[in-house]
Write a protein that binds this DNA or RNA. Sequence first.
DNA 1: TAGATTGTTAATCGATTAACAATC
DNA 2: TAGATTGTTAATCGATTAACAATC
Lengths: 220, 220
Amino acid sequence: METKEIKSISKAAIRRMPLYLNLVKQQIAMGEKTLSSTFIAEKLNTEAIQVRKDLAATGVVGQPRLGFCAEELAAAIERLLGWDNLQEAFLIGAGNLGAALIGYEQFIENGLNIVAAFDNDPVKIGTEIRGVKVLSIDRLENLIGRMHIKLAILTVPVEVAQHTAERLVSAGIEAIWNFTPTKIIVPDEVIVERTDLAAGYAQISSRLAAKAHRKVAANG
Amino acid sequence: METKEIKSISKAAIRRMPLYLNLVKQQIAMGEKTLSSTFIAEKLNTEAIQVRKDLAATGVVGQPRLGFCAEELAAAIERLLGWDNLQEAFLIGAGNLGAALIGYEQFIENGLNIVAAFDNDPVKIGTEIRGVKVLSIDRLENLIGRMHIKLAILTVPVEVAQHTAERLVSAGIEAIWNFTPTKIIVPDEVIVERTDLAAGYAQISSRLAAKAHRKVAANG
DNA sequence: TAGATTGTTAATCGATTAACAATC
DNA sequence: TAGATTGTTAATCGATTAACAATC
């Protein structure tokens, strides 16, 4: 398996990788051995040049006329994303959103395993959500250390987001996936990714609103 | 209320608007009348120049020495995002994620109201999730037309995402919020926003993996 | 061989950041 | 007035897209 030097990768390219991976796996399942950037671009409604540029970052070398080896590509993307190893995570805040993430089967395919949930609500503590125990938030620091947990999924109410983030950092967490609608401030070495449902909805609603405003303007 | 011409807005700026709005509302609740770009930047761990550039898009004019009028800013951002009007939406696919979105209280503040859910599972049809009825997918087209629904939240399994999107488009939907890990292909005039949990996780896991790979390399 | 596809280098585009005059 | 802050214009940065030689 010949690979060239790994190139630097843009954040946008990383976000597209799961789309490529799904498609590659789909082709493998259909018995295809190779797939070209042209094919991928057509399926994902994008441009072949972007696909080639993105895939260059995986280090996989394609073959003129044939495209890329599907198996090799799948393995390279999974390695690039770290989806070839299981990642254990704690979920902090066992509310609606937290419970949904625990039940989100897709994560297993991505190598993400939520091993415990934490909450401060005595009613929730001691219960289980789809086999995942809800523990007291008091035990957070101790268990992060003992279980060598690197990733925390933050689904607490926004008011306690910053404070909880600071607890996680003191306990030695390496990465925080922040689902709260605020920006948490942590040291640079801590990896933070914010998945903000409000930000996603803002894209949609602003465009719908712009359309509506234009219509009102046109009708006087 | 003096406003200047509305400027064009980047997607990234739109995504930041909810953060600004939350902060502004918080300041209003604390009795503050104005807030400056410097203050906002400090609170959100970003640069004042970016805040000013973003806020310029709302059309609100600030005052040197004082900053921006909080009330005016809140109203302008809500109008820009379309959060000043209630948006009714259908949710398609009443699985785990779908149920969580129905229960996500935050949406009400954003003016988003999920009025019905649709599924093809006879066990689910006829039940309610937090007061939202689960209806048969067979009634989708009819009800979109009758209730003048503009927005559909797509939480179906990935295999049926494209087909379901096409049904929504034929029924006259204007916007689709796509939570499936695939790109749906629809006519240009249909507004699509993809919120992909896998893409968000890819950011985190790739950085954790890069860190781990570096460590292995360093230890020989 | 002819032609589809890769991968590199250059050009373009868009967003962020810097500099600074205008303002209260 | 002095000084903090705004808002504009220009410079920089990063990502996307285009052009094209190399390859099988």
